[in-house]
Structure formats: structure tokens, C-alpha cells
Design a protein around this nucleic acid. Sequence first.
DNA 1: CATGAATGAGTTTTCATTCAT
DNA 2: TATGAATGAAAACTCATTCAT
Lengths: 194, 194, 194, 194
Amino acid sequence: MSNTLKDNSQDRRAQILDAAIVCFAKQGFHLTSMHDISAQAGISVGLIYRYFENKEALVNALYQKHKGALTALVLKDFPVDKPARQMVHVLWTRLADYAREQPRAFAFLELHHHADYLDAQSQAVETRIVDLACRFLQAAQARGEVKPYPPMLLIAVLHGAFVGMLRKAWEGLLELTPETSAQAEQCAWEAIRA
Amino acid sequence: MSNTLKDNSQDRRAQILDAAIVCFAKQGFHLTSMHDISAQAGISVGLIYRYFENKEALVNALYQKHKGALTALVLKDFPVDKPARQMVHVLWTRLADYAREQPRAFAFLELHHHADYLDAQSQAVETRIVDLACRFLQAAQARGEVKPYPPMLLIAVLHGAFVGMLRKAWEGLLELTPETSAQAEQCAWEAIRA
Amino acid sequence: MSNTLKDNSQDRRAQILDAAIVCFAKQGFHLTSMHDISAQAGISVGLIYRYFENKEALVNALYQKHKGALTALVLKDFPVDKPARQMVHVLWTRLADYAREQPRAFAFLELHHHADYLDAQSQAVETRIVDLACRFLQAAQARGEVKPYPPMLLIAVLHGAFVGMLRKAWEGLLELTPETSAQAEQCAWEAIRA
Amino acid sequence: MSNTLKDNSQDRRAQILDAAIVCFAKQGFHLTSMHDISAQAGISVGLIYRYFENKEALVNALYQKHKGALTALVLKDFPVDKPARQMVHVLWTRLADYAREQPRAFAFLELHHHADYLDAQSQAVETRIVDLACRFLQAAQARGEVKPYPPMLLIAVLHGAFVGMLRKAWEGLLELTPETSAQAEQCAWEAIRA
DNA sequence: CATGAATGAGTTTTCATTCAT
DNA sequence: TATGAATGAAAACTCATTCAT
């Protein structure tokens, strides 16, 4: 195929990103050296720079990739016109699925504080999904299904509850089973329902 | 008096810790250099090492100091035998007061990910308060006031909701007023109530 | 014909050398990367190594090529048996023509300091022309036309004056016109004439 | 003394600058690593950065120091109102003295091409002395002592002749004695005299 | 007790050169 | 021939920590 090169190139990129997320999830951005990533990927340090301008560009590409994937996963056929309870259910289970299947990606996205190195584009990815969530919540408020509080507050509570659950699970303090996830979901729903 | 030395010593320690929290809250652990802290404190770098073994010991001392202070503040005359709703109210308002009055301490404690450098003792401080909270919740569960879910899950949701609220406020996406705080508290309560 | 290969080969060499001189004249040896040269030539990096052992061999080939070309140009039908004034005139105008027509080659040859990387052969090229000039000057001295100083000194003054003029022109401090060049030539002549 | 610290600091700076000029004169800017300089100075690499922001700041400080010293040396009690021949004599002998006594400084200043890294201030140092020389020459032209050519051209020829002489001496092609220097001076004078 | 100069290991980044395709 | 991905050594620069004063 004529696009073998392109494919190889994409493979390398993906390989580096995969290595990076292992390191970043485990140690965070600042404790991860470019050498760590190259070693994890089984390649030389210099090669990373053929694919990413620098460490910051790499972490931003990584953020955008996974935040984008998570967003897409959550929003795919999202039950926009269904009752809020069902939206919360879909949201929660999809987040939980993602956290279970891609624990490192989720850890990277939610466990660490990114403010240091995220660029405007990465921040925009986050902003976009928050805006979307706001609109859903406002619609639900209009239908009287959820509390008439600032939508951003409800998002904060929902998101915070989810992340709180995950953190305790990561710390080994909470066993994360379908049952506990469902219980947490119920909590989250009751937190915001009218 | 021999006490003068001790006092001066304590003053110095406090002075360094105060400088450190300014830096850590603003830039995080890894982006803060010992020189940053010494400059903020108006002393020399070397002097910090008379009071703290190394950077890690300093950050642990800082963590324990503020986590301890927060714990003490929250638990002071805590309405142990009152209804859960009231306990949540006291908890929430005390946390909110602390976050408002000691924004840097709260940012340091909750904004950053500490797993890298916290030692066993620091983790124990956290463990202690979580255990306490568990007991309160179990009592409330026994009284049928809160959901019969794993107490750790309820704690995760409560804590997560509070931190979520604060994060959005820090990001400038949410105005944190007594009213919004009260609304969030109501959410949190309904999240866990039976 | 087997010549086609040879010719292509020579073309490639020339193509690379042409690209190299653009880069070296602009940025100097150390700031020019092999990738810069390959990009300028529109070929791949690896290909350069089919024609030149390494970067140093390339710069030496380049030096010898242009120093040789300049030498040939200056010496072509040089008025060996004419009065020194006329020799200086021919020398000066040919140097000036070359500097005008091949500004990059001249910049490369005279603007930068080559001592770092020039090999024996490159230095020999320079030596050869200097020796030649010495002989001309000694003949002129024998005729009493130029000062009876060490010929090398007179060469140094002549060459230095020319390069000095060019440098100021490169720096934009001096407009280089036929008139100013002629004036400088007159200076140079009077510098060495008996 | 209360300024022991200041003095030590100045000593260190001077020590680093001294080491730097040895390296830069020998190898040029790009071939000299910060480690080379630290080794030459007998100190650690990191220490250089306490005294100079970075390599570029170091080379600029060095340039300004020596260009400034040379300028001061040349201009000290310069025979401004004396005949041009005498001015050329003073100029030439002082340059020659400096080149003999501070060969490395002179090599650094004149042998290498600085355009890459010199900052505005360093360039201003050079500009200032050239402007001054222009004024002297214009005055001499007004008195009919030197050729009525663009002053910058005369400067180029004078300066070029001197540097040309020095280069040949560095290359070992010319023995630089008081006599040859005087001869070159005579050449230089006749180059520009009316 | 207090300073801050000094160290050197560690980090990011570049680039000449090689080699499988 | 020709490519350009891959390597790894070396460079600039940082910073926690030490120690002479």
C-alpha cells in the first residue's frame, strides 16, 4: 500500500503516546522524563522528537487524544431527549466503563493537575464538553427534572462525585464493582434531581 | 529562657511553612524550587535545611500541618449525636469557611496530587479523618438517615462534590457565594440521605 | 554511456554543494545542520553521505571548489608582466566582480572563520595562491614598483583591505558601487606602492 | 571589608570570563561548551550560571568587556587635534600593543564572526567606536590630510589592513615584529593619506 | 544561627551519522 | 540510488543539597 509510511508513522506516534500515558499516569508529568517514555516505548529518546515538538506538545497531544476519546464515547448516541435520570445513567456507566477499561487514561486525565502545561487547544477540549453538559442540564431544569441551581454547580457535583469515587478506588479504599458504581450513580442522581 | 530558642525555632519553621504553602499552592510541588521558598520567606536556602531534612520532609510537614488544622477545625465540637443533615451542614460550612479563609492551604491540600511524595505519616493523617467519618456515617446509617451504601462510597461522593465545587470556583467557572455553597450542600446531602 | 552515471553523480555533488553554500553563507558552518542542507537541496539527508564522507568533508570540498574557482578567475590571463598598478587593478576588479556575482561564495570564503574544520588540502589551496601572489610581488619589488617590505605583509594589507571593504558592505555600513570599489582599490595601491 | 562578598563575586566573574576567552579564542563560540569553560576555570558548570544567565549572555559580557577595554586603551589621550599621520600612528601602535599583550582577547574580537550571538548592546559598543573614527577622519579630510573618500571606506581599509596583518601572523605566515608592524602602519597610512 | 556560593547529577533537546528498505 | 526513521552522544541549563564562613 502506498500509505505504509503514513501508517508506520501513525503507529510510532501511537506507540509513543501509549508509552507516555503509562508513565504520566504512574508518575505524573513532572516526574516523567523523556528517557522514561523512550524506555517504556523501547525506542531512543531522539526519536520522540521526530513525532512531537517537545515534552509539552507530547502531553497536550496525549490529553487531547484521550479527552477526545472519552468525550466521543460518552456522547455517542447520547439520550439527549430522554429523562435526566436516564442521561445520568448513561453518563455514569460510560464514564465507569471507560475508567475500568482505560484506567491509565482516566488516571492521567483526572488524577493529575494539568494547569501547568495544557495549551489553549487542550483547554478548549475540556471547555467544549462542559458547555455541552451545561446545555443538557439547562434543558432538564426547564423540564423541572433537576434542581434549579447554577448548571455549573450541578456539573461540579456530578463530576466531583465521580472523580471522588474513582480516587477512593485508586487508593484501594473502595472496591469498584458494578454495584458500588450503581450506588454512586444513584447518589449522584439524587444530588441533582429536583 | 530556654523557651526563647524553642519559640524562635518554631517561628522559623512556621515562616518557612508559610512561604512554602504560597509557592506550592501557586505552582505545585515540582515547579517550586527550594530557592523559590527561601525567597518567599526572605531567608537563605541553607536555612531551610536546618528546619527540614529535605524538600520532601518539608512538603510532608506542610501537608500534615494543614490537613491536621483542617481536621481539627472540622471536628471541633462536631455535632456527633445530632441528625446527619446537621452533621453535613456543619461539615460543609466548616470546609467552605476554611476554603475561603485559607484558600492557599485548601488549594495545596486538594488541588494537587500528592501521591508522589507523601510519606506514611502524612497518609495516616488522611486515614484517621476518613475513619472517623466512616464511623459517623455508619451511625447515621444505623439510624436510617443515610443510604445503606459502603460508607467509603458516601464519603467519596461528599468529598468529591465539595472538591468539585471548589475546582470549578478556582477555574473561574463558578462564583462561590454563601448561596451556591448552600445549594451544593443541599445536593451533597440529598446524594447521601436515605 | 558510463559517462551518464558520472555526470549525474557530478550533478548531484554540485547540487549538494550549491545547497550547502547557501546555508553556510547564511548561518555559518556550526549553525547549519545536514538537514538544512538536504532540505535546501531538495533531497534526503542520507544521500549527502553518498557524496561526502561527512560534514567536514563537505565543507572542505566546498571550500576547495570556491577557493579554486576564485583563484582561477583571478589568475586567468593575469597581466603577469605588466606594471604592478595594473596587476592590482585586475586583481581588485576581479575580486570585486566575484564578490558581486557570487556573494554567497565570497561570504562563505571570507566572512567565516574556517580554522576549525579545514583540512590540509584546503589549506594548501590557500597556500598556493598566496605563494603565487608573493612571487608577483617580489618581481614588482625587484622592479622598484612596490614597497620593499615582506611580501606577505603586503598581501596581508591588500587582502585585508579588500575583505574590510566587503565586511562593511555586508554590514550595510558602506554602499558598494563601482566608484567606492575603485576608491578602495586606489587606497590599496597606494598602500603598497613604493 | 564589607565588600568582600562583592569582590569575591567580581573575582569569580572575572575568573569565568578569563576562562571563557581562552576557550572562545581557541575554538570559537560554537565549539566551546559550557563544560569546556568550567573546566578551564576549574569550577563546576552550574556555577557559571550564577554569574551569567546563559552562554549568550556570557559571550556578550566578554565581548563588551574586551571591546570596551580596547576602545578605552586606544582612545586614552588620543591625539585628536594632531595631524592624521600621528593619529594613525597612535592608533596602529596601540592596536598592535593590545594584540601582542592580549592575543586571546584580540583573537576573540577579530578572528571570529560574532553576528550569530551578539546582542544589541554589544553591537552598540562597536558602532560607537566606528562613529568616533568617522568623525576623526572627517576632520582630517576637512584639513585635506586624507583622501576625500567615504570615511567608512577609509575605516574599512585601515581596519582591514590591521586585521589582515594579524591574521597572517596568527597563521604563522608573518612574523610580527615592531618593524613589520611599523611597515604595515606605513602602508595603512599611505592607503588613506590624500 | 544564617548565608549563599558551589557542586554535579539529571533533564530536555539537537544533530551528525547509519542503515533497513 | 535514494529515503528518512532511528540512534545516541553531547550540549545547555536547572536545582536539591552541602558546607565553608
